[in-house]
Every structure is written in structure tokens, then in C-alpha cells.
Design a binder for these strands. Structure first.
Lengths: 165, 165
DNA sequence: TAGTTCATTCAGAATGTTTAGAACGATGCA
DNA sequence: TGCATCGTTCTAAACATTCTGAATGAACTA
């Protein structure tokens, strides 16, 4: 292949890897996706490992990760028993959904922690006195504020979700 | 301090640490923020290191990181030469801005990589023939598609940004 | 069946990130 | 000035993540 053409794609692949990392995805998976995205023909594991200069094991694991996300799919090439993969080109929604899921889960855990803290304070009830009473009051206020932030973030994610669809 | 009260906050702090990690922030910084957020009085480095059971160096670096972000500020306590910090309670916008900045920078780099690739192909111009000519055509198409995705993501970020304000 | 080619798995190597804690300089005070 | 108490910086260690490459077994061929 024309090495200039190849190099131009390398830059893109590299950049998508960085972007993926920034979004908490695996760099290799992101690079693999970019490579598949730019390729017209499906690629074999060998194609990918040669192109990205990484081990076959690495490609194997990560390309199946992409498949799991719905970002790539295995295709059958007549007369060849190797596995070939091609990119799901319309991946935008898939990735954002994935990011949303991770974030939502963490946020829900935080909401649980907030509720748990509130419960603990409620249990303490009238038993607090002096300094502790004041502290409990501040805690209740802050936890309330934390819940507000939770709901704002939640609304933001929902809105983003709708925009994507 | 009432240890039940303290424990209830610990759960919250822990959870915010996890959430912060998920957003690409430093776990310690996130925990420190949560701790300051819950505290009515400003805290000294010693207070924080004891509470989170981490080294003073660690606290020093990360609390100043928070200050840099505008998420915490140093306050002067009369008659005490130690540094005290308190949380900027309305931190929502600050954090999201920060996340936006990071993401936007990466995306801009990707856009540059796309444009660079396009330029390289354009330079090749009519010199491609046969297989390469076809490849160049596919590349142009895919890069066009990549730009589309870039602009959609960009729009999404902009919209989110407006919602936050 | 023996030999070849493939994908997968997994232990440990390589790499990247975070932390502890010692060393240091600055500040305040007697 | 000498001592005590801070905050900061830095190195090496701990820890977490990612990657390689050898081992394995499945699928195919002659």
C-alpha cells in the first residue's frame, strides 16, 4: 500500500486512541476501532497486529471487546477460515450509551451513599448534643445540597441522551 | 467527634472518590473535595491527612490541585499559622467546565489529525492509481464521516454546557 | 492421522500512576 | 540565634493497568 496513505491513517488512529483514553476506554480498543473504521475491507487479526505493531493476544482481546460493545462485528470471508472484523460505522450512539451507563452506575452508588449517611444521622436522632448536634445539622444541609447536584447531573445526562438519539 | 457521624461521611467520601476516578479526576483530590464539602469549618492539612489516612505530601499536592481548579480555597484562621482550606460549595460548573476543556482539547487534536489526513490524500492527488485510487476514495469518505461525528459530539458538548450554566 | 494455521487464554513482564515519607526551606517565636 | 512547626518537593516503593508471547486447543487439509 502507498505508505503516504498509510501514514495519514496512522495519525488518525493515534488521535482516536488518545481521545478514547480520555473517555475512559481502552486505548488499544479505540485504535483498533479507528483502524477498522478507515478500512473498506474487513481485517484479520494478523492485518491488525501488523498494522498497529502489537501482539495477536492483545488484538484478540480488544477486538472482541469492541464486538461486545457493538462497535465491530465479525464477518465471514468466503474461502478463508480466519476471523475478519469490520467496524460498525454508526458507532456514535453505542459509545455514548456505554459512557452513560458507567457514569450512571457510579452516580447511583453515590446517591446510595448519601441516603445511607442521611439514615445514619436520622438514627442518631435526638441523641446528639452540643457540638455534635450542630455537626449533624450541617451534614443534613450538605447532603441535601449533594442530592441537588446529583439530580442536576442526572438531568444533564438524560438530556444528552435524548440529543444523541 | 461522634464516630457514627464520622462514619456516615466516610461512605460519602469514598463514593465521591470512585465517581471522580470515573470522570478522569484524581481519586484523592475527589475525596479531599468531598471531605471539605461536608465540613463546616475549614480544615488544615493535618486534619485532612488524619481523616483520610494519607500522607501529608499527598494532601498538600492534591488540595492545591483543587485550589487550582477553583474547587477549594485557602482561608486564613486568625491566630493560626497553618493553612486551612474550605470547599467552594458551588462546584458543579467548575468540574463540568474542567471536563469539557479536557475533552474539547482531545477532540480538536482529532479534528487536526483528520484534516492532516485529508491534506495528505489531496497532495497525492492524481498520482494514485489502481487499488490506491480506490483506497484514497474510501479514506476521503470515511474522514468525511469522522468529521460529521466530530461536529455532532461538539454540538452535544455545547448543549450540555448551556444546560449547566 | 499428522501437520498446519488459526484464535484464545493466561502468567508474568513492562509500563504508567499514585502514594509514603524523608529532606528541605520558610516562618514564627523565645 | 536556636528551636519548633509548618508546607512543599522529590525519590523510591506500592499499586494498577496493559501488553507480550508461549501454551493450548480447535478447525481444517492432505
Amino acid at each position: 500500500m502507498n505508505s503516504k496513505l498509510e501514514k495519514s491513517v496512522d495519525g488518525f488512529v493515534e488521535s482516536i486512541g488518545q481521545l478514547g483514553s480520555n473517555l475512559g476506554l481502552n486505548k488499544m480498543a479505540a485504535q483498533l476501532y479507528a483502524l477498522l473504521f478507515m478500512s473498506n475491507d474487513p481485517l484479520s487479526l494478523d492485518d491488525m497486529m501488523k498494522r498497529l505493531k502489537v501482539s495477536k493476544g492483545n488484538v484478540s482481546v480488544n477486538v472482541r471487546e469492541l464486538e461486545k460493545w457493538g462497535a465491530a462485528r465479525k464477518v465471514w470471508v468466503k474461502g478463508d477460515r480466519r476471523d475478519f472484523y469490520k467496524a460498525e460505522l454508526d458507532v456514535f450512539k453505542i459509545i455514548t450509551e456505554r459512557l452513560k451507563t458507567g457514569l450512571t452506575r457510579r452516580m447511583d452508588e453515590t446517591l446510595q451513599a448519601i441516603k445511607q449517611a442521611e439514615e445514619t444521622i436520622r438514627e442518631g436522632g435526638g441523641n446528639f448534643n452540643g457540638k455534635d448536634k450542630k455537626t449533624a445539622k450541617v451534614y443534613r444541609e450538605r447532603l441535601e445540597k449533594a442530592k441537588e447536584i446529583y439530580w442536576r447531573l442526572n438531568g444533564l445526562i438524560e438530556t444528552a441522551s435524548k440529543i444523541i438519539t
